[in-house]
Amino acid sequence: MTDMMRSPEAAARRPAGLVAGGVQAVMRLTDPPMRALQRLIGAARMPYVFLLPNLVFFGLFVFLPIAINIVFSVTGGTALYPAERPYVGAEQYARLLDCGSYLDPGSCREDLFWRGVWNTLTFTVFQMVAMVLFSLGTALVLNRPIRARGFFRAVYFFPVLLSPVVVALIWKWILQRDGLLNAALTMAGGQKILFFVDPGWAMFWSVFVSVWAHMGFYTLILLAGLQAIPRDVYEAAEMDGTRPWRVFHRITLPLLWPNLLVVLVLVLIRSVQVFDEVFVLTGGGPGTATLMIVQYIYTTAFANQVQNFGLAGAASVLLGAVLFILTMIQLFLTRRRSR
């Protein structure tokens, strides 16, 4: 009887056991050569052996590319190999930064880059405000003594796991001309709206869909922060008859502030690099209304007729500099939080 009751769990454990057994078998096979290696170079040098694969990967696919990127950004032509590219100095940067007025992309030589910059900025500002408001609101509600908290938390969280392409297609289907939302609008007596033909709506839905897809992640971080606030602080406040707004303002917000900061910076870093969902949802359109910086870089390097690695490289270096600063801020904040 007990066996029967345990069987589903055991059945679930069997594949896991099989995998573990396979791993163990591989490890047993690798043991003799690694032992021989240790005898050859000595135990003190073994850490380098353990580090080597990762460092090779980082070197080949991160550090070397950074160097190549800088080379790209100071060379011209259409060749992919750096040796075949003529040196042009800061010309690519000059081309990117050549603007009549930075406030008006139309006056710039690379107007698409500046449209990307302004669109990304707009997106980032709205995204940060909406994301923090909704994830904080949801975390506060989920932190109340409610039934089925696990279920509701899962409801907000599951889109985080979905592929951005899937997310974009789900919403594209709802927002299309004869889609569900327009059906609801006409039934309510309104007019159909062509959401992807109107620049304002296209940007609105880009932000909305990104918030929909990722708010569960930030809700989790904030909820963890809320649950770490000791209960007795609230109980003391309640005994003193402190008004709810004051409790939120003077207790919840200050104690949650480190988490909130981390969320803000994370949203910022991710928003600056936004690409996937927006690209599939709007294709950067209508026109260039939702063209983001990363899409500009991708198009310049890969999708255009003439692949301009130099210009894309220069734009990448500029974006990389911004991200570097933002990540330094994030590391500083997380380090302060963990202290």
């Binding site: 696919f61 590319p65 990127n69 790209f72 190999y81 990363v294 390097a301 690695f309 990448s316």
Partner: peptide, 9 residues
Amino acid sequence: TIILAPVYL
């Protein structure tokens, strides 16, 4: 996102 082209190389 910022090293697409060089990683491609």
